[in-house]
């Protein structure tokens, strides 16, 4: 299987260096364009699995570039990257056609998690009715969860959190991803609400079982990880 190809359009060489280094370490094939117009041409010529686009580019700004790409029928997922990281900047970016928006400075894990989520979404569009991970079985339609055959009583929000974690099983789901996907908030509350909610879910998932399954990834987020299942497919 060929490596996922990522087009990075970013004028700042330092920033581009960081993104390239982080993504290359994950075995992604990163192509860097320092100029907006050149990036637009590049995106038109060859197929990429994902475009990482800086918002403030000197020749052609990211929002305009994105509009042109979308108008030209390029449907490649776009992760917009910007030092403009406030809530309303994100709304502008997402409404402008970006599939995700990440403010600078970002945590390496945050970038990796979002890139993986976008790549997964692009390749795996069919949502299955049953999600399985390790000994957890989730029936999406009937909204029931069993672990090792035992029914787990979850609140609707807990179900949503677990579903998101299962869709990204083995990979990190960051706090901001949880806030955006589950609570539709694109800003960080000043208190540790996400951690408290996740530790509640952990109790529901692990109470009465010997194996831990919900891990906290320090400084990044959370992931489902089974010790007997550590090789992800």
């Amino acid at each position: 299987m060929s490596l996922p190809r990522i087009l990075l359009i970013e004028d700042d060489p330092v920033g581009a260096g960081i993104v390239t280094r982080v993504l290359a370490a994950q075995n992604f094939d990163v192509r860097w364009c320092a100029d907006g117009a050149q990036g637009l041409t590049e995106a038109g010529i060859s197929a990429f699995d994902l475009i990482v686009l800086d918002r403030m580019l000197p020749s052609l700004d990211g929002l305009t570039l994105m509009a042109r790409l979308r108008a030209a029928g390029v449907a490649t997922p776009i992760l917009m990257l910007s030092a403009l990281s406030r809530s309303e900047n994100r709304v502008d970016g997402l409404e402008g056609g970006a599939d995700d928006y990440l403010g600078k400075p970002f945590d390496d894990n945050e970038l990796i998690a979002r890139v993986r989520a976008l790549l997964r979404r692009a390749t795996n569009k069919v949502h299955s009715a049953v999600l399985l991970y390790a000994d957890i079985e989730m029936h999406v339609k009937s909204r029931t969860v069993h672990r090792a055959g035992k029914h787990l009583p979850l609140s609707p929000k807990e179900f949503e959190i677990l579903k998101l974690l299962m869709e990204h099983a083995g990979e990190t789901v960051t706090r901001t991803m949880l806030l955006e996907k589950i609570w539709h908030l694109n800003f960080d509350p000043q208190t540790n609400v996400i951690d408290v909610n996740l530790s509640r879910l952990r109790i529901r998932l692990e109470e009465g079982f010997n194996h831990s399954i919900l891990e906290t990834v320090r400084g990044a987020g959370f992931r489902l990880m089974s010790r007997n299942h550590s090789d992800k497919s």
Binding site: S155, K157, W183, N192, V193, V196, N197
Partner: peptide, 8 residues
């Protein structure tokens, strides 16, 4: 939001 803060 109330639900989000219930655990806290």
């Amino acid at each position: 939001i109330v639900e989000l803060y219930a655990a806290s």
